[in-house]
Computed example of a mutant assay.
Amino acid sequence: MARDELLTVAQVLRELGGVSRRTFYRWRELRTAPPCIRLPNGELRIRRTALDAWLRDRAEGAA
């Protein structure tokens, strides 16, 4: 089984079409951001599958 890719916040922001870092961290405060993993050095990572699921849940017309 392939390992799930861990994305940096910068990679996620680029994929979301240039959402600002400030907006992303605001979403985290509001608990509406995709689930993140905090590494021992304090950096955040987002699993590819978590980001894809988060995007699917926000699609217009999603059931």
Rank of each mutant, 00 (worst) to 15 (best):
F24E: 11
F24M: 15
F24I: 13
F24T: 09
F24R: 11
Y25F: 15
Y25A: 03
R26Y: 13
R26E: 14
W27Q: 11
W27I: 06
W27A: 07
W27H: 12
W27P: 02
W27L: 09
R28V: 15
R28P: 01
R28C: 14
E29N: 14
E29T: 14
E29P: 04
L30D: 11
L30H: 13
L30Y: 11
R31D: 09
R31M: 06
T32K: 08
A33P: 01
A33R: 04
A33Y: 04
P34R: 03
P34E: 04
P34L: 06
P34N: 08
P35D: 03
P35K: 03
P35L: 02
C36P: 00
C36I: 05
C36L: 07
C36N: 05
C36D: 07
C36M: 05
I37W: 02
R38L: 09
R38V: 15
R38E: 15
R38H: 07
L39A: 05
L39Y: 01
L39I: 01
L39H: 00
P40L: 10
P40Y: 10
P40C: 07
P40D: 14
P40M: 11
P40A: 13
G42F: 12
G42C: 10
G42W: 11
E43V: 06
E43C: 08
E43I: 07
E43K: 12
E43Q: 14
R45K: 10
R45T: 02
R45E: 02
R45I: 03
R45V: 03
I46A: 01
I46R: 00
R47D: 01
R47W: 05
R47P: 00
R48T: 01
R48H: 05
T49Y: 14
T49C: 15
T49E: 15
A50G: 06
A50F: 10
L51S: 01
L51H: 03
L51Y: 02
L51T: 02
D52C: 03
D52E: 15
D52A: 10
A53V: 10
W54R: 10
W54I: 05
W54G: 04
W54S: 07
L55A: 12
L55G: 02
L55V: 14
R56E: 13
R56C: 07
R56W: 10
R56T: 10
R56M: 09
R56K: 15
D57F: 04
R58P: 00
R58V: 05
R58E: 04
A59P: 00
A59F: 02
A59Y: 04
A59D: 05
A59S: 07
E60G: 00
E60P: 00
E60T: 00
E60A: 07
E60L: 03
G61M: 06
G61L: 07
